[in-house]
Design a protein around this nucleic acid. Sequence first.
DNA 1: AAAAAAC
Length: 484
Amino acid sequence: MAAFNEFGLTGPVIRSINNMGFEEATPIQERAIPVALSGQDLIGQAHTGTGKTAAFGIPMVEFFDVDHEQIQGVVLTPTRELAIQVAEELNKIGQFKGIRALPIYGGQDITRQIRALKNRPHIIVATPGRLMDHMRRKTVRLNQVRIVVLDEADEMLNMGFVEDIETILTEVPEERQTLLFSATMPGPIQALARRFMRNPEVIRIEGKQVTVANTEQSYIEVEERQKFDVFCRLLDIQSPDRSIVFGRTKRRVDELFDALTKRGYSAEALHGDLAQSKRDLVMRRFKEGTIEVLVATDVAARGLDISDVTHIYNFDVPQDPESYVHRIGRTGRAGKPGVAITFVTPREIYQLRVIENMTRKKIARMPVPTIKEVIEGQQRLAVDQLLQAVENGDAGNYKTLAEGLLEDNDAVTLLSAALKVLTKETDRTPVTLTEERPLRMRQDKYLSPGKRGYSRNASGKKGPARNSGHSSPRGKSRFGSRSY
DNA sequence: AAAAAAC
């Protein structure tokens, strides 16, 4: 691996990198940074958790003129949480050079954002809808932009987003650099991306598998109605300090969160129907460790870098293989070990094969954990807690109490009682969640590379234009008409 | 076919 001082970066940027504790460049950084610094367009694909943000952030900060107080860079992300996180990291990279990044996203008071824009950020990190709002209000000017980054690029170019991207790009100079990054990049999306890039260099960090090797992947076959009980057993056996469980729909996430809370687990829900203030609060509490189980939709599937998430549970099979890759990529980051367990109903086994086929990795079957294992797990936890307290050596205040107790009781009886008290009794009140319909994954896209289900016209629209409020201000799109 | 993304 290369050291960061091999890229010819200037002092303040090197200092920031050192300050952040980065020592050696990851493979994607090693290959992408020189290309980005040369001014060339770039499609960068690398595994989850391998430092893609710094791979585009370092060249941006290096490249930008701190005295030119205009927006020189735009990073687009698919979720608000990711915009916040990326802006934070860019600010760290820019700290000694004085390059400022500002997150711009929906659900936040717009007048506050307008005030923040008066601080003259060099980079904005935005979700598309709110950025377009600012464009219409003329509160952001994009005519000085030199670099545009699509983070989670395949998602940003998916239907539902691509028209917004197109609109935003109409206000960015054509003489710009366009950088795309993601852990997944389906062929048709990459082809679409080239339409508004200029001779991009494609950098793929090859791995035999798409997923991260240090994450242990398994699945449990279980009937829909047994899922919740089996999930609780797993939580009791594994007792992760910080885990994420993904549900398929917002309602599902709400129900799962309610049920977990009723059983006494420390959980919170995260999905797009919650107020942004609530989303921010949940994220903050999850990061600080107050919440053990984050119950989320795919809003949390991509990009979020939360340290020490050890377990990912797919309560429902993800909608597509890309989603699976990104979801389980919330663990096993920066070389740490991770565990990913997916619940599959008998009717959905085929969907699991589709995922295995795409990731080129077999997902091991795990038997349904038994009550006996749960009890053993909980007892093990009680013993661990006790031994941890011994190791901490801070129970001195209890010695007199203990000696008194030992006068009338024998040690084994006392210790057994202590362990019994420490052992968490699980509430087994039956909980019924609303049944989900089994997933029917689109198969054509993943199983027959020659005949994929993407039938778009030049503008990326499928069928007649919808969502006319998002269309280009010029009426006719320039997207696809650029002559590269 | 769901979620995300503006008010």
